[in-house]
Computed example of a mutant assay.
Amino acid sequence: MADLTFEQAMQQLEEIVVQLEQGELPLEQALEKFEKAVSLSRISQNKLQQAEQKVSKLLQQQGGEAEEALVPFDNQPDNQEDDA
């Protein structure tokens, strides 16, 4: 499973989530799907970290400051105007 691309892992993860949300799987099968989903989630996270490290390394090689150039997505300001 580790040889999956990020996109393949995410697609499989989304399919499992849909199956689990339907609530029609027997308990044992639901647990197996959940275990696979956790594994796919870890694979996806590792692939994202590897990509971030590559980008950071490339930015450093270009003389840029990776710390300033890469901002975690969670820290992005919320640009939605729902509160207005």
Rank of each mutant, 00 (worst) to 15 (best):
L59I: 00
M10N: 09
F34A: 02
L58S: 01
L25N: 06
I43T: 03
L31R: 13
P72A: 13
L48I: 12
Q76T: 05
I43A: 07
E35L: 13
L20C: 04
G63Q: 07
L58M: 01
A30L: 09
D3T: 14
I16A: 01
V71T: 14
F73G: 08
K33R: 10
V18N: 08
A37V: 07
L40W: 05
Q12I: 04
E7H: 07
D83V: 09
V71S: 12
D83M: 00
A2P: 08
L48A: 11
P72G: 14
Q61H: 05
K47A: 06
A30I: 12
S44V: 00
F34I: 11
Q76E: 07
G23Q: 08
L70S: 00
Q22F: 10
K36C: 03
A51V: 06
I43G: 10
E24C: 11
Q49S: 13
L27D: 08
S44Y: 01
A30S: 11
K54I: 02
G64M: 15
Q12N: 02
P26L: 06
Q62D: 04
Q80D: 13
G23I: 12
A66N: 03
L31D: 14
Q61T: 08
V55R: 12
Q61V: 06
L27W: 04
L25M: 03
E15L: 00
Q76F: 02
P26K: 00
L59Q: 04
L4W: 03
Q8K: 09
D74S: 15
D74A: 15
Q19W: 07
L25D: 01
D74H: 13
K54F: 09
V18P: 06
I43Q: 01
L13N: 02
N46L: 13
E15D: 07
F6P: 04
A30K: 00
D78K: 12
V38H: 07
V55M: 11
G64H: 13
L27S: 09
